[in-house]
Nucleic acid binder design. Sequence first.
DNA 1: GCAAGAAGAAGTGTGTACAATCGGTGTATG
DNA 2: CATACACCGATTGTACACACTTCTTCTTGC
Lengths: 234, 234
Amino acid sequence: MAEEKRSRKTGGDRVAVICTALRRAIIERALSPGDRLPEDSLGERFGVSRTIARSALGQLAAEGLVDLRRNRIAVVAVPSFEDARDIFDIRVDLERQVVRHLAGKLTEAQVKQLKAIVEAEHQARHGAEGISIRLATEFHVRLAEMTGKPVLIRYVTEICYRAGLSLAVFSRPHSSECAVNEHLELIEAIRTGPADKACALMDDHLEAVASRALLQSSGARSRDLMDILAPYTE
Amino acid sequence: MAEEKRSRKTGGDRVAVICTALRRAIIERALSPGDRLPEDSLGERFGVSRTIARSALGQLAAEGLVDLRRNRIAVVAVPSFEDARDIFDIRVDLERQVVRHLAGKLTEAQVKQLKAIVEAEHQARHGAEGISIRLATEFHVRLAEMTGKPVLIRYVTEICYRAGLSLAVFSRPHSSECAVNEHLELIEAIRTGPADKACALMDDHLEAVASRALLQSSGARSRDLMDILAPYTE
DNA sequence: GCAAGAAGAAGTGTGTACAATCGGTGTATG
DNA sequence: CATACACCGATTGTACACACTTCTTCTTGC
């Protein structure tokens, strides 16, 4: 009923409510890339006018989760292969920064919180695919939040969601995105280890996630025809 | 007159027009952190309704340039010291990625384009402070654009603008933000040199920009008392 | 003289109306 | 039979109206 009152009286930023719902629907793959999001339907579904729905779409577009073209129905963004690769490259940098800030500084409470998420991941392993993906994302987001740095949190969160969306496009079904034990190892490394080691582990983890989805990091090979052919020009 | 027609007929995304104008006003310091941006005035100034102005403010808020609090007049964002530090940390990572992608691959046309900007910077050196800051920012943005990677471009652009805003808060007046010769060296290093060397130079450059503004990068030293004292505990 | 409160002004939050535009369908035409 | 075109429904773009909140200022009581 507090819900009731809040949703009727103050409304407490109803745009944010829609954004959160859509983000979650996207990351859980209830919404797929390319799916249409007409303002009317959205507004009707959430009990608000088109104004609010439109504003939410604008925000999600700014986050790269929604494609907004003039006079056209908004759609869930469809990252290109290049986009996906770039997103993962940036993600590696950002999450490395998270790990660097956190290495050796996790409190017991924080470790417990992270382990709880991993536990939930473990339990969701054989349930709906979407839940497990959401939890995996949540793990990374929570990690970022523990830095207490608002700017970093914002970018990591955004890039994680975009990465999830990219995986929805390019990873084949039934490939478990984030092995839970990798997350467990990560917790241990961050809790105990030196920053370098923890960073390396995060690199490996994200690399593994990307390659499971058939992406190969652009950092590894240069993908430039001239470079590739260089050894053969002799 | 093409302008006239476009602005009246198709309107060609008038939200974007306002965003661009405000971004520029902010980066040139015509608008200072904390300055009020009432929707009415904005709409009147640009000849649009409050709807459009509001939408523009929403977008800029998503970019971190505007602070939007419920029922309150929007203001140009006022980054905290911690925000500023985080922004620069992230900026370093992102721009390093730009350099890595560009090292040894700049075309003659691109080099020329970059040098033109630096030349403009040089000429603006003794003019209005705002112009010179805008050009310095433009240099970095253009560099990012040359990667042709939309995602990277978007983040670098955003972070550069936010960095400029941070400098508006924390750097004292009359400290030339980006020495033009540093930009020239950067061009040379990227054009000729190996990626590592160019990256290092970009690091130095951004470090210099930050420290000129009395920020010390958090990456360089760990800022943790226990770590600092470690060598002395023998 | 000063603090507390009330009233008006200023500004935002949201729904709605209407114009402009897009997408699809059916029809005419070569 | 394929293509071009015109029409209509669906959907977005934008302005505006009205309710509500916040800010300002003036007044009132102590």
